[in-house]
């Protein structure tokens, strides 16, 4: 009898690593459980229902559908939206086809991206930078004028650089699912699609600031942090407070003695652990507002943990805006630091 009470587990093998997971688990989730060879995800966000499937960076090859039906799937599939079957065999980095397709997706995502990392507040914690570094090619073959948009303020706290947006839809899902009134959305279509409020409107509610944390790139940034510091000059610290609106569990980003930014705590996949309110994010910027819990764990691959950028350079090299390409020397230097 006890056997029957236990939940059935299905076996899935990803790049040779086998794991048993609950039915309904996606390939990406299974890969994250294994912890190795995890497909990159630019649009999927486990805390946002309906997210994923759009960016196509997490494409994998299903070389065996299941034990029952071992046929391979005819096309590469988005691992974030494909649930495992018992006996499924998946290839991620072991498939040349996947690598090739992913490099293609990276090229597409960077086609219209301004690569203005030297002046972007997201640099150093940007998922597109990581993606480009890990899966992209050195040069773009795109020779046409890039799509640009005006930079706009959506409310007092958030700035939208639509030019940097990769249309992951995460911010739209966030406003739909954790705030009571969504006022921004995806307008227009095709490569003219953009995040916008249409008529100038502030995204104004207690949880709106979370769009900054879910944005994988520098499209939605914290105005109170704008140009305050490169992230690798700051020190993240775990802190909490008794907040009536949210969990109050945050990361404080110090520069010297000053708290220059407050964000939600993020897990190893870059997702927030719990969404936080705007009061915590934008208004509690004194150490005395918080109970400090200790330093934030920073992955040793992260540029933030390097934190000795100043030792290598006397001053940051800011290239001309017209030559901001992936193959620009300054871009590569930035990237070296990530290694």
């Amino acid at each position: 009898m006890e056997q029957n009470v236990q939940e059935e587990l299905w076996s899935v093998t990803i790049d040779g690593n086998e794991i048993k997971v609950k039915p309904g688990t996606t390939v990406l989730q299974a890969a994250r459980m294994i912890g190795e060879n995890v497909p990159p995800a630019m649009c999927y966000y486990s805390k946002l229902e309906g997210s994923g499937g759009k960016c196509r960076t997490c494409l994998v090859k299903v070389s065996q559908g299941s034990t029952k039906d071992p046929r391979p799937m005819p096309k590469l599939v988005a691992s974030c939206r494909t649930t495992v079957m018992d006996g499924m065999v998946v290839q991620n980095t072991t498939s040349p086809e996947v690598k090739e397709a992913r490099a293609g997706v990276v090229e597409f995502l960077l086609l219209n991206h301004p690569l203005d990392c030297p002046i972007c507040d997201q640099a150093g914690e940007c998922h597109l930078q990581d993606l480009g570094y890990e899966h992209g090619k050195q040069k773009t073959r795109y020779e046409f004028k890039r799509r640009t948009f005006e930079r706009i303020d959506i409310g007092p706290y958030i700035q939208l650089h639509m030019t940097r947006c990769i249309l992951c839809y995460r911010c739209v899902f966030t406003c739909d699912q954790i705030t009571n009134e969504r006022v921004h959305g995806i307008l227009n279509r095709g490569d003219a699609a953009e995040i916008s409020t249409y008529i100038e409107k502030a995204i104004d509610n207690d949880f709106s600031g979370n769009v900054i944390d879910v944005c994988p790139v520098g499209a939605l940034t914290d105005k109170t942090f704008r140009f305050k510091s490169r992230v690798w000059f700051t020190k993240p610290v775990q802190a909490s407070c008794n907040c009536g609106k949210c969990s109050g569990k945050v990361t404080l980003w110090y520069k010297g003695e000053e708290v220059i930014r407050v964000t939600a705590r993020k897990d190893q996949w870059g997702e927030v652990e719990s969404f936080i309110c705007n009061t915590c994010r934008f208004e509690r910027k004194k150490t005395s507002d918080w109970t400090i819990e200790g330093p934030t764990h920073v992955d040793n691959k992260s540029v933030i943990s390097a934190n000795h950028y100043e030792l290598k350079y006397d001053q940051p090299v800011i290239p001309q805006k017209t030559s901001l390409h992936a193959d620009h020397p300054s871009f590569k230097e930035d990237k070296k630091l990530l290694n």
């Binding site: 969504r182 006022v183 959305g185 307008l187 916008s196 249409y198």
Partner: peptide
């Protein structure tokens, strides 16, 4: 419905 829901459709 929300105005943004209409804008999203109207511009598509």
């Amino acid at each position: 419905i929300k105005p943004i829901e209409v804008y999203e459709v109207a511009t598509f």
